[in-house]
Design a protein around this nucleic acid. Sequence first.
DNA 1: ATGAAAGCGCTAACAC
DNA 2: GTGTTAGCGCTTTCAT
Lengths: 346, 346
Amino acid sequence: MADTTPTTGHRGPDHRATVRDVARRAGVSPGTVSKALNGTGQISSATRERIRSAAAELDFRPNALARSVFGRRSFTVGVITTDSFERFSVPVMLGAEDALGAGRMSVFLCDSRGDPIRERHYVEVLLERRVDGFIVTGRSSNQRPPLAGTGDLPVVYALTPSADQQDCSVVVDDRTSGTLAGEHLLRLGRRQIAHVTGPDDFDAVHQRLAGLRTALQAGDATLVGAPMFGGWTEAWGRQATQILLRAHPEIDAVHYGSDLLARGGIDALRDLGRRIPEDVAITGTDNWELLTEGARPPLTSVDMGLAEVGRTAAHRLLDAIDGRPHAGREQVGCHLVVRASTDGTA
Amino acid sequence: MADTTPTTGHRGPDHRATVRDVARRAGVSPGTVSKALNGTGQISSATRERIRSAAAELDFRPNALARSVFGRRSFTVGVITTDSFERFSVPVMLGAEDALGAGRMSVFLCDSRGDPIRERHYVEVLLERRVDGFIVTGRSSNQRPPLAGTGDLPVVYALTPSADQQDCSVVVDDRTSGTLAGEHLLRLGRRQIAHVTGPDDFDAVHQRLAGLRTALQAGDATLVGAPMFGGWTEAWGRQATQILLRAHPEIDAVHYGSDLLARGGIDALRDLGRRIPEDVAITGTDNWELLTEGARPPLTSVDMGLAEVGRTAAHRLLDAIDGRPHAGREQVGCHLVVRASTDGTA
DNA sequence: ATGAAAGCGCTAACAC
DNA sequence: GTGTTAGCGCTTTCAT
């Protein structure tokens, strides 16, 4: 019977070479090909080389699917965001993908848009794809219900922690962010420090405020006026700043719970004729460069380390997949980036 | 020999039920389970129901990997971004994931960070995972070299088109964005219109400018002063605006090539004591709500339809996977979002 | 309508 | 060292 396989080994445009094709071409058995290409078992370097070149000539690419059916791992993880990739979860996902890719893992991207039905659906789909684990990320520091239906697969929560304290969650250090800002302002000699921040129902808002207060107390100072809770908008940043400075003209520094709020604050202070930082020093939170660099003057801000949250979450997940689970919440450090809004020489 | 399988069918925490388990429990053969669950073949509704409940009781989840090994599709696609998920590729990816998820496809997320080595690596990995196709997205409208090494798999370029005109690319309509802004400003009665935009080496910059000029010519107007090419920064928006208004105090409108530039422009105009929109009307490009809504006054801007680019790219890819390939570049429409920076009553 | 058997591409045990 | 065999979980003829 004629061999229908041409010598090139190519069998039409949409056929891919298999171990069998490579084996035939190298004159060995499929099992040997597997060993040679994976470095398992004992193979003479002569045949290994022959197999290598046969594989190369056929443009052979091992089928990861088939491989995973056999093995117990797929080397994939699902990343579920509830945040529609708004600015907070993006850096987290980026960091996670970075760390996971280095570990030869691929990432399934899922956007649940905060809808539990969609989230449930994605879990189902990912389970069918036999992911090795999940990373769940959200928008705020407020805790969320644990991801349901994942069986015994490891789950790591990033940015938005699980309500179950035993689950592995990697979060930012909101408290310290406030402390860093406060300490910085005190170090500059400011004593009349106010705070403008986001909505009352954000955990991050209260943590940041608590951290700020801690720093002020340690420096024998107290917050000027009440903390200004409101929306995460520039408009609120402007309005709150006007209110504050009207009531407390002695204010010489304001710490803002976000960079957007701080941008509004800068606008308002300019309108009021206050110089930054000579009259009033300004600090923001998030260190979102797009906003901080373009500000007049450029804005000192606390970098929450979002990418690091993603990377750390990925490492915790990899550990869990390798049988070394982590439990509880872990905080990633934040750091202050000083710019001209507090340091005129910067 | 004793049957070691307990009647519950569960075989330890990390064992997952297979068709065989379901078959045993329902008292049928594996093949029948497959047919029943997939709706193929002829099954009596009685046994179908029995199989269904057996599957449910065992929490059976078909292994998508095994299924794909057999079939010719994996129902996965790779999305490669060169943009580190900066603000342009994010909405595109979001739109793509949305459209693909509806088609029961899962998305592998890959961030090449613009590094050709990494890109190549990702292509390899994704080929091994037997993706059904690729979406490539980038940061700008500048074309890029075709994705190499994808064999005969379909590739769709989103936002950043392929240099090969025959490849399927889905892009924004930069030209029309300029036209829309120009027409809007003319309609408001403005005649002294200037333009501040990004670097000279961006295709988008030239297209947007050309579109703007088209509109002005149609309205028997011409651009005031030279187009101001510079960085995509607020600082350039401020500086360029100052230069323009010093040289041409008669300017009654400025169209900006990005919202960030426009924000800078607004600041500069305020410094110069010009009222917006009474003295000078302002339009931006991108309609990035974070920047447009917080501006004083809120900024009229052209929405480039990035999510729609992603969704369209996904649909083109799905078509190609289904054997109906598209070729050439396709533009997605943009639209103007009017706010108070051009319409004082908005 | 259901079962038996073969096979997808790969790997791992065990021969030789 | 290398080949043979069996099997991963699923689907799909082909019998019955």
